[in-house]
Each structure stands twice: as C-alpha cells, then as structure tokens.
Write a protein that binds this DNA or RNA. Structure first.
Lengths: 341, 341
DNA sequence: TTGAAAGCGCTAACAC
DNA sequence: GTGTTAGCGCTTTCAA
C-alpha cells in the first residue's frame, strides 16, 4: 500500500505503476485536457493504490497558481471573527479557493509578520480586518499585485477593495435612537480602545451625535481582559454607584451588555422604563437571556461572504482590477431594553 | 519602491540590485552560513528597498522543508476549538512553525478532503480532532510520514500520538458525583450525536455508571441547530413538563445548561436543592450568570499546547518516532448547581 | 566568505 | 490522446 522507505511518492511513481507518462498522470489528476477513459481509470487506480497525494508545492511553483486566500484577523476568541470566517468559507466553497487564517492578536507588528509570512506563500488574494495597518503592511499589500479586501470597517482609505459597515455611523445612529426614545442621562461602557479602532469609531460617532443634540455623555467606564459577562456586571454596578441618575447605558459590545442586563434584572430595575440598555453586535449566542438586549447587527457573515466573492471574481477574471467598496447597513434591533419612541 | 510590471520580485532582483550572487542573498535572508557584515547590510538594504518577499513555495520545494502544521477541527463556532487553537498558537510561537486551520463541519467526507488538501502542502505535522476518521483518512495520515497528533479524546486507537481526555470517564465521573450528592431521578439533555463522538462517549459513560448503581436515566431530550441558550430553555421546559419528578438535569454542554439554568431560575426553582444541574466544558464565557453551573473542564488550552509541543519536538529531533499518549484529567467544578455530598 | 551548477516535483507549451 | 522539453524560484552541494 505504502512505499518502503519514507520518501514521499511522486508523479513518477504513479507514472511507472500505471505505465503512462508523468504528464498524462498529471492531466488525469487535475482533470485537464483529453485523456481516454481507459487511461484515466488505470491512472486513478494506481494513484489510489499507492496512496499518492500530489505535491502542491511543486504544482504551485510550476503553474504559479496558488489556490489559497489569506485571511488575517485579530482573534479567534472574539466570536465575531469565526462568523466572518463562516461567511468566507461558504462563499469560497466550490470555487477551488481555500481560506488560510492568520491571527494578529490586535497587534500591528504581529499583523505585519503574519502578512509577510502569508504573502510569501503567494496566495491568490488577501482578506484582512480593518483599515489601520503599518506603513510596511500597506506597502506589502500594494506591491503584492493580488486582490486585497479590507473588511469590517469602511471609515478610512482602503488599499484596494473594502467591505464593511461604518462604525462611526453605527454609533451615531444608536445615539439618535436613544435620544428619540427620550433617554437623557447616558452612560457609556466599553473596552479600553487603544487598538480596537472599530470600537473607538463607534464611540466617536456616538458622542458626536449626542453633542449635536446638545447632550454629553454623563459618565463612562472602561475595562480590559477577563470574562466580558462579569465585567459587564461589575462595570454596571460601579457606574451606577457613581451616578445613580443615569437612565441609559450604551455598551460597546453585547457580552458586557448582557452582563449588565443580568445584573440590573436581578436588582429588579425596570427595563426599559427606568433604564434603557443597548449593545453592539447581534450575537445570536445571547438569544435566550431573560430579556433581549437592544443591539445592532454588524453583518458579519455577509461581510465575509462579499469579501470572498470579490476575491473569487478577481481570480476568475483578473481583467477587472477596479476596487470595490461595499458599505453594508447595520440594522438596529430594539429587543426589550430600548423604549420604542 | 515596487517593480514596474506585475512580475513578483525574485532573489535575482535582489541579487542584481545589491551586486551579490543569488546564493549570498539567500544566505542573508535566511541567516544561514557566514556572510560578512558589509554584504549582509547591503543585501538587507536592497531587499527592503525593493520590497522583496521571499517565495516560500520555491524555498519549500528546494529544501523540502515546510514550516506549516495542519490543524484539522470540526468547527470554529464551537467555542471549544478557538481555545484549542490558542493553545496551539502559543506553543508554536518561536518554534518557526505556523498552524494552518482546516474545518470539517463534523463531516467525515469533508475531513477527508480537507486532510488531502492539507497534506498536499507537505506540512511538518498534523493535529486533528478526534479518533474517528474514514479509512482513507487514516491511511493518508499513516502514509504521510509526518508526526500526527489526534486531540480531544483518548478513547480509541490513535494513528500516532494522542492528547485529550477520556470523555467516557468524564461521563462516568459526573454520574458518580450526582449519585453521591443524593440525586435520584436524572434527566439527560444533549445534542443529537450521530457525529459528535465525544458527546456520545460522555453519554455512554454516564449511563453506564448510573447502571452500575442500579439507576436508569429517567428521561432524555435531544436537539440540533439553533441558539444553544434557547434550546436549553425549551428542552428543559419540555422535559419537566413530561416528567416533573426529575431532580437532576445533565446537559451535554454548558450553553444548553446555561439556558436551562436561566429558565429554572426564573421559575423560582430551588437550585441545587430541589433540582441539580450540570453541564460540560467550563466555558468561562459563562462566568457572570446568576449562578455558576456545575461543569467539567475539558482542558482545551492544554490539549492544544501539548499537541503542538509533540509536533515541534518531533520536527526538532526526528530521531524520536515513538508515539506519545497523554490523557489529561478533567476537574469537576461544583459551581452552585450541584449539592456537595 | 562567496559563487556555480544541479535539481526539488510539478506543469506550460508544443510536438507527434 | 499522449509524450517531450524546459523551466518555475529557490536551496543543496561542492568548488574556489
């Protein structure tokens, strides 16, 4: 079944076993060109019997075609990215392209390294989260000559194509809804944002929209690390101790929002009457909580799908190098924690 | 900065720009062999200026060394696997090895395809979830001649090395704890298990340990798809409607357990007095719920780390082909939903 | 310390 | 339909 020594099998082995030239074997294995049914059958039988697995490294070098799409994201533990990955995988299925994931840990230096590493495999395209990269990273992306899609965020200048939502507008929109619903004394709870540019942009959009209406954030609270659910509880407790007059809490993500919601619920606070709440993301993980948190859908799956489609379209027809810009519209869901105006 | 036409840069370009042979450029870029400081500086400057990114495909073909480790898992949305990935990434950092993820969607056929695809890149090792694979997959793994580590589960016959816990024993242990705490009428709630072998093994271990004590599962309920939190609520409601006499519910994972817990909590059920609950996994996502669900830690991070260490040890010293078997001991945490005996 | 030649395993391009 | 030849861009090996 297997070969005696540990030398991996080559086309040549299959060629000898089946009595056909290497070239014909190659054609059979790739379903290319005309091969008689008899030959095809013979080759496939030999390949299977030997347990031959083609060497894509050699194939890629010879054909300068690599069916990989580099996907570069900050983290896998942040629920959001697995969902994007799902969209990408689904869209890439049956295109012959394969996603390869690299994780940056929200660090620009790590991103640069991961990108360099991935580009050195000469992928057919790159999907990368965010618009903020080091100069070197941007230079590499531009010089690579392959399609690049930046995802999640559209507030900024992309290298090539971009698919995402405007986090700034998402923040603005939520601020307007909150005001429209009659809340007045608004607190903000979120992550420390030195690196999470999207959270920062939402925050900026939020405060600016409030400012336009003459409202200022009454208080704010930031966290880092730890279980988001617990942090949400703790921060909510803290901010309300400091400022019991708050009538709305805007959380920068649904997990801390859920923590706050659970705590307030236990305290018997009237939601959304006495206190309104909203988060961000629409994690359907959270369906099943005692009440549904108001939130905004970040279109994660669709972002992944559209980005992958852009890449595969470019690969199929590289005569179309015009950058695409897709700004999706997140939809607000009121849940049970935001008074309908 | 970049080249005029779209031809990717090669060693030759750097060689010409720096006036040194390709071979010397190659040595500089890989930090191999003796190169004078002057030459090194000149080469690095040229490479940087041109924006040269080495072609690993050619490098791998020439050296037959590939610094990739294939990681094959069923899913990314199941919280569990990102945690394993984190363990793997951490252990692989600074070894020069890079994990590459493939996702099977719990399907053997897909697993076979993904494995074939990954092996065709001639990785330095394979980490693959579970012990149940198609015959063809097992054959490929054996024939590959590279280190293979099967993870998560140790109940079965590995191809090579294995790192995990015994899910059968985990089920048994939980059954014993429940009986020891004095619960008598026990219900089981879980996923439909045609493909989740680990959930199945826990279930089997659980029922067998009960049987040994002369106890039978009083009722059971299975689900598939949808938000686990909601499913947990619904299933709990359903099973108790059918059988209100139950005094313990064992859930096959913490998410449905949390759903059940929330619902029972809302109904004012006395937990763990009137009703005991336990899940499986120790997702620290869930810290912050009104009460802490009893559960068992599946050692996910450590599994990833240990598996990666096995691979990197083999790569560093391939004179050590003896398979390793690591069975970790999951620890039970009582939380607030299992009476201490 | 540096360079030249050969070849990794495959496929493009062309010949038959 | 099938085979032959010439590389793909690197690294190994050996010579200088």
């Amino acid at each position: 079944m297997s070969n005696q020594d540990n030398r991996p099998l080559t086309l040549r082995d299959v060629s000898e076993a089946s009595g056909v030239s290497e070239m014909t074997v190659s054609r059979v294995l790739r379903n290319r060109g005309d091969v008689s049914d008899a030959t095809r059958a013979r080759v496939l039988a030999s390949a299977k019997e030997l347990g031959y697995v083609p060497n894509k490294i050699a194939g890629a070098l010879a054909s300068s075609r690599v069916n990989l799409v580099a996907v570069i994201i900050p983290s896998l533990s942040n629920l959001v990215f697995p969902e994007v990955m799902t969209g990408i995988s689904d869209a890439l299925d049956d295109t012959g392209l394969q996603p390869v994931v690299g994780v940056t840990g929200y660090s620009r230096e790590k991103e640069e390294k991961v990108l360099y590493e991935m580009l050195s495999w000469r992928p057919s395209g790159v999907i990368i989260a965010g618009l903020e990269h080091s100069e070197a990273s941007r230079a590499m992306l531009k010089a690579s000559g392959i399609p690049v899609v930046e995802i999640m965020d559209v507030d900024g200048t992309p290298v090539d194509s971009v698919v995402g939502i405007s986090h700034r507008r998402a923040g603005e929109q939520m601020a307007r809804e909150i005001l429209r619903s009659g809340y007045q004394r608004i607190g903000f709870l979120g992550t420390k944002m030195p690196r999470d540019h999207r959270a920062r942009k939402r925050f900026e959009g939020f405060t600016e929209a409030l400012a336009k209406a003459g409202v200022e954030i009454a208080d704010q609270e930031f966290y880092e690390g730890g279980s988001a659910l617990i942090k949400g509880r703790e921060m909510t407790q803290d901010i309300l101790k400091r400022d019991p007059e708050l009538d709305f809490l805007y959380y920068s993500n649904d997990m801390i929002g859920a923590g706050g919601l659970l705590w307030l619920h236990e305290q018997g606070v009237d939601i959304p009457g006495q206190m309104g709440l909203a988060g961000f993301n629409g994690l359907n993980l959270l369906k099943g909580l005692p009440r549904q948190l108001a939130t905004m859908d970040a279109c994660r799956n669709e972002i992944g799908r559209r980005a992958a489609e852009i890449i595969s379209a470019r690969v199929a027809d590289d005569a179309d190098p015009s950058p695409v810009r897709i700004a999706l519209e997140p939809t607000i869901s009121y849940g049970d924690t935001l008074r309908r105006p």
